[in-house]
């Protein structure tokens, strides 16, 4: 039984890529995470041609998570909340340089639709044919708690069968394609938030084993500092959930975001 401020986690998908990897992912986001079902979706992802790097890797994480669902599962009524950390940094550098060299005529029409904070949620909604609400959230240091909290609110308040939360960030911020070669890695996490009713309706078999709930609960220790957890910590927990402690994030307004598996605490 879920509590008042709690969602079930039905599936989790992760992806990561360096700048060099992203070029290949843009053409086929299945590259690092081949779909177990073998569904060949690469052609439908021509919409990634102009997409920001965050969107490309976010879609790859979505594909990975989707593989956990039955093949004929429909996401048509689902919503999506995307929380990239500083979207557009890498993609905006070259256009700005070009604008200063060549003027307004050099600026791409695709710049605004693909680099704004709402770009990833819109693209995911389109790519996966989801007609529930979609919006971006955060955009800065607090992208992880902002994304989780917003996804939880949408799921709890809008009577949807499910809500995707997609979180992305670079391990180290790159500033231009040349300088980004090498170590910086763009990481992405896709979480499928659902209600118990939805989970029951489609069977429990796809529920993610390592983390089954996302919950907001009163803090035991009050903090006045804003919470800026890195995505890496959440990925580490999800990759190796053997630790008895759930992942948690103390918010600066007297509440904690907690992600864990029932009965593990």
């Amino acid at each position: 039984m879920l509590s008042k401020d709690e969602c079930a986690i039905a599936a989790v998908g992760m992806a990561q890529a360096t700048c060099q990897d992203i070029a290949a992912l843009r053409k086929n986001p299945h590259t690092p995470n081949p779909s177990p079902s073998g569904r060949g979706e690469s052609t439908e992802f021509s919409l990634l041609k102009h997409a920001d790097e965050h969107t490309v890797v976010g879609v790859a994480a979505m594909l990975c998570a989707r593989a956990a669902f039955p093949e004929d599962f429909s996401f048509a009524d689902w919503g999506v909340v995307a929380a990239p950390r500083w979207p557009g940094r890498l993609s905006s550098y070259a256009p700005l340089e070009k604008y200063h060299r060549e003027g307004a005529r050099s600026v791409s029409a695709m710049l605004i639709p693909n680099l704004c904070l709402h770009a990833m949620s819109g693209t995911v909604s389109l790519a996966f044919q989801m007609r529930g609400p979609n919006f971006g959230v955060g955009g800065g240091l607090a992208n992880v708690p902002d994304g989780l909290l917003a996804g939880m609110v949408v799921q709890l308040e809008q009577n949807l069968p499910g809500t995707w939360v997609v979180l992305t960030e670079w391990t180290r911020e790159p500033f231009s394609p040349a300088a980004a070669e090498g170590t910086p890695v763009l990481q992405a996490l896709a979480l499928a938030l659902t209600t118990e009713a939805t989970s029951a309706a489609v069977g429990q078999s796809f529920l993610f084993a390592g983390a089954r709930y996302l919950r907001l609960e009163p803090s035991e220790v009050l903090t006045t500092q804003p919470a800026y957890p890195r995505l890496q910590g959440l990925l580490d927990y999800l990759v190796d959930p053997t630790d008895d402690q759930p992942w948690w994030c103390a918010l600066d307004w007297g509440m904690d975001l907690v992600l864990g598996a029932e009965g593990k605490e």
């Binding site: 955060g138 800065g140 909290l149």
Partner: peptide
């Protein structure tokens, strides 16, 4: 140079206690 988002800065300037976030749906 761009570590803090404006909403957090404004929240601190106003002395507000509560959740604060930016949303974008174009």
């Amino acid at each position: 140079g761009d570590e803090e988002s404006l909403i957090r800065i404004v929240q601190q300037q106003l002395g507000l206690r509560g959740p604060a976030t930016v949303v974008a749906a174009a």
